[in-house]
Design a binder for these strands. Structure first.
Length: 428
DNA sequence: TCTGGGGTCCTAGGACCC
DNA sequence: TCTGGGGTCCTAGGACCC
């Protein structure tokens, strides 16, 4: 069977999500900020035209914001996750073979569909998502995922394609003409470092890259680089992945809304991060052996004393029981906390993860942080159930605190129209 | 005043074993 | 003075992605 993939990529996704429930934002410059209202992580086309780069700190574009009346939003992940889900569900109405690649992107296997024109199918996909969900997407269709990415790039830069480009059945020569216009840095899998390296060998365009010596590419970019090159030639070697593999590590970390100095404040923050990470751990039916806690000062403040450190605690037997992890996390924090520093960020990393049905129990567990009572799994399941039904933090742990004065800034968040009754869309 | 968060894969090199 | 060969496992670091 011929391999044909489609890459569906939501345009300026977070901005588009804001526009779904606030049509006044249409055709206006809009940015969405990262956590703690720090950087621009989504920009409308109007903002991109003003020269604002991805990841640009908000404070650096303050003048532009005022001058061009840019609408600024804190990120509203609950809303974005829900809209993303709707986009993906719509894709499943075309084919069961969907790989959800990220919150705003998916690959679909079109090879199993009998269609007369891939271009037409692409346009249908685009229209259905726009009609049903309200988010504009770009569609790139090609025999390999890497070429899909290229097709998508072109679509985004050239409005005349009306959102869809299929490289299928395009003669090799015509594809080469396109590749000559795409810089190596725009190839999926070629980042900043490899761009520098390739440029230094005289390889500038995707065309140059495609026609370089494969042995040489493998040597300087490992096996992944070789795969990328092969895919550019139209030979698929990165397959669709339908099942989401279990995470091997789970991280929860945040910058603080204000600098913290005391152990008590940090311990509360860490306790919250542990709670988030262990909920994720249980949601994939896993347990972990290790927990790492890290803290750091503000690396951008060169006039402040800098410090960062981490400590890893290893349990005697795998656990996913939040209180175990909170105790171990607090202990880890106590190992690295130093007074006299101004802390900006902390986080928790859970690793050595295994499926909860395959854990190796120890006969005599002497771990001072692990509770060994019989009903712990049952209890924590009930808590997860209640939080799932009535919303996050319905049942929570005392050590997580109530005021949470360290919470990241989120001063311009829109309402959670689709996931929170109190914030449902009001027509006035 | 103000600078995000969460992942994956690959390789080289060291420790250790027989 | 001479100082094997082959294998595994683990970790740190570097690259990438969105």
């Amino acid at each position: 069977m011929k391999k044909i993939f489609a890459l569906i990529d939501c345009n300026n996704f977070y901005v588009s999500c804001e526009r779904v429930f606030n049509p006044k934002l249409e055709n206006k410059p809009v940015v969405v900020l990262s956590n703690n209202d720090g950087c621009c992580v989504a920009r409308s086309n109007e903002v991109k035209k003003l020269g604002v780069k991805m990841g640009e700190p908000l404070f650096k574009i303050k003048d532009l914001v005022t001058k061009h009346k840019i609408e600024v939003f804190s990120s509203n992940y609950e809303l974005y996750a829900d809209i993303s889900n709707r986009v993906m569900q719509t894709l499943f109405t075309f084919s069961p073979d969907v790989e959800v690649y990220s919150i705003d992107e998916a690959f679909v296997n079109l090879g199993s569909l009998s269609v007369d024109s891939y271009q037409k199918t692409g346009l249908e996909i685009r229209k259905r998502i726009l009609d049903w969900v309200g988010v504009p997407v770009s569609v790139g269709i090609a025999p390999t995922k890497t070429l899909c990415k290229i097709a998508n790039e072109i679509v985004k830069k050239n409005p005349e394609y009306k959102g869809v480009l299929s490289l299928t059945d395009m003669p090799e020569k015509e594809i080469d003409v396109i590749l000559k216009k795409i810089e190596v840095s725009d190839i999926w899998g070629v980042g900043r470092q490899y761009t520098k390296k390739l440029n230094s060998y005289g390889i500038y365009t995707s065309y140059d890259f495609k026609h370089s010596n494969p042995e040489f590419i493998k040597k300087i970019m490992t096996i992944q680089g070789l795969k990328t090159q092969t895919e550019l030639k139209g030979i698929s070697c990165i397959p669709l992945e339908y099942e989401i593999p279990d995470k091997k590590g789970i991280c929860s970390s945040r910058s603080f809304g204000r600098p913290l100095t005391t152990f008590t404040e940090l311990r509360e923050a860490v306790s919250n991060f542990v709670s988030i990470a262990s909920e994720k751990l249980r949601s994939q039916n896993s347990k972990c052996l290790r927990i790492t806690v890290f803290i750091q000062t503000n690396r951008f403040k060169s006039n402040e004393k800098q410090y960062s450190n981490s400590y890893t605690y290893e349990f005697q037997s795998p656990t996913s029981y939040t209180p175990d992890l909170i105790k171990a996390g607090s202990f880890a924090l106590s190992k690295i906390f130093r007074t006299g520093y101004i802390y900006k960020k902390a986080g928790v990393f859970i690793s050595e993860i295994q499926n909860e049905n395959q854990v190796q129990e120890v006969l005599f567990n002497m771990d001072i942080f692990q509770y060994t009572g019989p009903k712990k799994d049952f209890l924590i399941r009930e808590i997860d159930f209640l939080n799932g039904k009535f919303g996050n933090n319905t049942v929570t742990f005392g050590s997580n605190g109530f005021k949470k004065s360290w919470k990241p800034k989120s001063e311009k968040r829109s309402d959670r129209y689709t996931t929170c009754f109190a914030e449902i869309l009001k027509i006035t």
